[in-house]
Simulated assay, not measured.
Amino acid sequence: MAITRRQKEVIDFLSSFTQKNGYSPSYEEIASGLGLSSLATVHKHITNLQNKGLLQRAHNRSRSIDVLPARSGKKAPTVSPAGPHRRRQARRSNRKRREHLLSDIIGNREVFALEVRGDSMRDEHIVSGDYVLVERTRTAREGEIIVALIDGSDATLKRFYREGSMIRLQPSNTEMSPIYAPAANVSIQGKVLGVLRKYA
């Protein structure tokens, strides 16, 4: 079975991380470990590897990505470049992959889409006009990208950090300063699962 070089790197990272820590990495940790800036890219690689029978995961628990052992009598996956014939195959199956990706991101969770306005998250490759898929939740972990209401009215998309009794909402744009607000004044609406971009 042929896999791309990046997919091989994903498998190697998953195996190494799980062996070292005793649990599988989050999508954020995979992105950080492989130098990927988009969680949607991580989802795409994981989904493709799952479809090839090399990974398995459960939607109802976190850190649920498991590398499957090689099946008896089958060759180990090989890395192959994406030549012209593979690019044609990719174009033909584009719609199917998008449907798989969207289904995989959402799973059984309550998700809504939000159009991005402004460039406060541009260093995460989230720019004005993009749509973010947001899982509705009232809690978040340190460093997660969230949608928050400040003082019940001003919605913002930022990375989330607790600093004592204050919340720091950190933009991913070196030209912008973080927002600080008392924890009681910040209401988390959800955390970002992925980014959708429409090309005209």
Score class of each variant (00 low, 15 high):
M166I: 10
K75D: 15
L54Y: 01
Q189V: 14
K191C: 12
S26G: 03
K74S: 14
Q56T: 14
I30P: 00
E144Y: 09
K75N: 13
L49V: 02
R197D: 05
R197Q: 12
K191H: 13
K158C: 07
T174Q: 13
L196G: 08
R109G: 02
R57N: 13
G152A: 03
V10E: 00
R141Y: 10
K96N: 07
R197G: 04
Q56V: 15
T156W: 06
H59W: 13
E28H: 11
T78Q: 12
S38V: 10
V195N: 00
V79H: 11
T156R: 01
A90H: 08
L169K: 02
L34C: 01
R162H: 07
H125C: 11
P182R: 00
A113F: 13
R95M: 10
K75R: 12
T156F: 05
Q50P: 00
H125I: 09
P25Q: 11
A113K: 04
K8P: 04
A200T: 13
I179S: 01
G73Y: 04
K52R: 14
G107A: 01
L54R: 02
K191M: 06
S120G: 06
S187T: 15
G107E: 04
K158E: 05
R71P: 00
E99Y: 13
R91C: 14
H59F: 15
E144L: 08
Q189F: 07
G35C: 03
A76S: 14
E9I: 06
K20I: 09
R71D: 09
K8D: 14
F13P: 03
H100K: 12
G194P: 01
D123Y: 10
V111A: 03
R138N: 09
G107D: 05
A200R: 12
R109L: 08
P25I: 06
L39H: 03
S103Q: 11
I188D: 03
V195K: 11
H43K: 01
V79Y: 04
V134N: 03
L101G: 10
L68E: 01
H85K: 15
Q19W: 10
L36R: 07
F112I: 08
